[in-house]
C-alpha cells in the first residue's frame, strides 16, 4: 500500500511533538516517554505519579477529536496488518520497550536531544531491527 510523501506535515507535526516534550520538561521536569507514561499508569506504584500521567493520556486521546472538530477530517489510521500481527507486535513492543527503558518518544525525541549515550545506542538499534523486520515480512516471507 503506497502512502503520500508528506515532508511538510511531518516536519510540522514533529515541531509540535517537540513543543509538547519541552512544555512537559518546563512544567513537570520530566521526559516525555510514552513507555514510561504507560507503565507508570498500568502499575501505578505511586498515586501522584500516576495522576499526571493519566492527565497526559487524556490530553493525548483528545487530540484526534480536536483535529476532527477543526478540520472535519479524522487523522488517518490505515492498518495494513492483521489483528494477529497487531497483538504479536504489541506484546513484543511492550516487553522490549520496558526492558530497553524507552521507545521512539523517550529514547528517540527526548534522549537524542539530551545526547544520552543510552539513547544514542538504543535508537539505531530499534530503527535497524524495525527495518529488518519489515524487509523480512514484506520481501522474504512475502506478507
Amino acid at each position: 500500500m503506497e502512502t503520500d510523501f508528506t515532508p511538510f506535515a511531518s516536519f510540522g507535526g514533529g515541531l509540535v511533538i517537540g513543543l509538547g516534550a519541552v512544555f512537559l520538561m518546563l512544567g513537570l521536569g520530566r521526559i516525555l516517554g510514552a513507555t514510561g507514561i504507560m507503565s507508570g499508569l498500568v502499575f501505578a506504584d505511586n498515586k501522584e505519579e500516576a495522576a499526571w500521567r493519566l492527565a497526559m493520556v487524556v490530553g493525548m486521546v483528545m487530540a484526534p477529536g480536536l483535529i476532527f472538530g477543526l478540520t472535519g477530517t479524522m487523522p488517518a489510521v490505515d492498518v495494513p496488518v492483521s489483528p494477529t500481527m497487531i497483538v504479536i507486535g504489541g506484546v513484543i513492543v511492550g516487553f522490549g520497550a520496558s526492558l530497553g527503558s524507552g521507545c521512539t518518544s523517550g529514547h528517540g525525541v527526548c534522549g537524542l536531544s539530551r545526547l544520552s549515550v543510552r539513547s544514542l545506542a538504543a535508537v539505531p538499534t530499534f530503527m535497524v531491527t524495525a527495518a529488518l523486520t519489515v524487509f523480512l515480512i514484506r520481501h522474504v516471507f512475502g506478507g
Binding site: 496488518v81 500481527m85 497487531i86 504479536i88 507486535g89 504489541g90 506484546v91 513484543i92 513492543v93 511492550g94 516487553f95 522490549g96 520497550a97 526492558l99 530497553g100 521507545c103 521512539t104 538499534t125 530499534f126 530503527m127 535497524v128 531491527t129 524495525a130 527495518a131 529488518l132 523486520t133 519489515v134 515480512i137
Partner: peptide
C-alpha cells in the same frame, strides 16, 4: 525487540 514489534504492528 521493540524495533521488531514496531516493524510487525
Amino acid at each position: 525487540l521493540f524495533g521488531i514489534g514496531w516493524g510487525i504492528a
